[in-house]
Design a protein around this nucleic acid. Sequence first.
DNA 1: CTGTTAGCGCTTTCAC
DNA 2: GTGAAAGCGCTAACAG
Lengths: 350, 350
Amino acid sequence: MVDTKLSTKNKPNVVTAQDVANLAGVSRSVVSRTFTENGSLSEATKQRVLKAAEQLGYQVNFLAQGLNRRRSQLIGVVVAHINDPFRSLLLEALLKEIQARGYQSMVTEVRPGDELDETMRRFTQYRVSGVIVTSGQPPEALVKECLQYSIPIVGINREIDLPKVDVVCSDNHAGAKLAADQLIAAGCRSIGWLNYKHSTWSGLDREKGFQSSLKGWLENKDHEYIEIQSERNGYEGGFLAAEQLIASGQRLDGIFCATALMACGFLDGMRKNGLDAPKDFHIIGFDNTPLTAQYSYRLTTIEHDVVETAKRALWCLESRARHEDMEQRVELIPVKLITRNTSPIHSQDS
Amino acid sequence: MVDTKLSTKNKPNVVTAQDVANLAGVSRSVVSRTFTENGSLSEATKQRVLKAAEQLGYQVNFLAQGLNRRRSQLIGVVVAHINDPFRSLLLEALLKEIQARGYQSMVTEVRPGDELDETMRRFTQYRVSGVIVTSGQPPEALVKECLQYSIPIVGINREIDLPKVDVVCSDNHAGAKLAADQLIAAGCRSIGWLNYKHSTWSGLDREKGFQSSLKGWLENKDHEYIEIQSERNGYEGGFLAAEQLIASGQRLDGIFCATALMACGFLDGMRKNGLDAPKDFHIIGFDNTPLTAQYSYRLTTIEHDVVETAKRALWCLESRARHEDMEQRVELIPVKLITRNTSPIHSQDS
DNA sequence: CTGTTAGCGCTTTCAC
DNA sequence: GTGAAAGCGCTAACAG
């Protein structure tokens, strides 16, 4: 009974497993087993320990637990620019899913240009159970570091050409095809594609998908493809692109945008110049955020299911925790077309 | 030299302080001191240790460190509904500030109706350095629990009538007065106030401020105050409120909304009915989010400085960590009027 | 300035 | 099923 002393002797108010053990008349190990699935112990003692714990207000110290298990119940999440409607939607879904599975989120914001090095290091220092990268490209060296600690990593909506790093990603090609088909069906002839000049991989992937979906029509006559690369990103980028398009004298009657936010910006830029959808052109954006549903936009969009994305991401993490040597997996999340005002269904143009 | 063995013998690839100590030819404590501000050690050895650490790729295990210090470098953040433009803006600012000060964010999402109990408990279990509550009302019992672990708590934009819990809050009364003055100056006579029926404390505080700013004018003749309590919150709430107002046959020529998102909704609801600002009425919303600046809204708003709010919150946490017995402090963050299209400056109406 | 000595609070073999 | 013992990796007095 050498360390049987009540810890209240040392630090008032901090109850430890030993205190519970004393009260329940068992050893520290039994208390530990009570709070972790793995140990075998009789129902009777378990109840006794639980009662004692309750009575004392005992709660496991996760720092000690993590130190021991070499793994905390923390999941690292890398985000950027969460004021973007889609990003915040995704983060919300991730937080929810992470908590639902009994983990806690350690969220790190990275700014463009930041190295992920520091960030990833923090994750390993806290021995997180997994890392979710929603922004930025994890430097190979750091990924290795995580792998060395057997910390699974999953990327969302980005290509990560590192083995053993899974990625979950919206089905950009399917989405782009939905958009292309809709614009074609609406009778559009001059079809634009709007993207940020320094686009993420997602944007580029959507671009590829859009182009290949349009290919058949472009090979024939009277369809035109207009590519717009905006100097800026997001709403501003879309807005400027519209202004410049107008200034250039070019016209189009249908456009698909890499993100819904850009689409809203583009639409507004056109409106400022007296043009509006669906009257003067059709417009579709990728990512169905609440913003796009607002009355002033009512944008036709491609919906990307963030809840499913989050679930998949956690599933990747957990399954890889069990078999860390699996090959990289790529989970494609299905998309669908949400038809709203800016490119309505059953268009009479066609 | 009893525990001088290289830990690589046990767990390959996990470098511990002992490994660094061995390589640098010093004791574990010296390594520890090198990585924490408090210890005194000669520059020479420090460099030697640093070099050895670098060479081995050593990194402090925060779990062990936290266990020892009874405090992790984690800050708990309680959020809700982060897809709301203001909420995500605030969270972004908080994350940034938390990281800037060398902490990591443990973000917990709560849903309306959730008890904060579980959440707060997690925070204490990880021995966080502080808790920031941006949503929900922390139950007194749990706050006590944090206090018992000497974990400082700060609330943002909410009243917390618990001693020792600081709050930082936008200057709602000043903001409301700015809005009232602007509407009055614009010549509005029938002035509305729109809020969510089950508003947060912030909304109610703005309401009080707005009413008292209007008091003088209402006591005279020809000014009218119209209070609208929406059944729903956010954009939807504003939209519905407008529809119902129109349906009721009532009219107003100026309105102030508890949040900018509600204002956008209200504006859209009016537009759907053929009315628009500033032509038919003026409208001002609280919180200057990027959404309000978009061309389709160009909403006149009250700006609430989230960066300053975040800085203040961390300052509260850190100062209270030093003197935990201070009385509750209330930090008011200055606001200002951002004049845009929905209630322009130099209105000719007046 | 540096090393020694005790832990921090929990988990986990390994005997009994 | 339960207890003893040996850590997890680091920090913090306390000597020297």
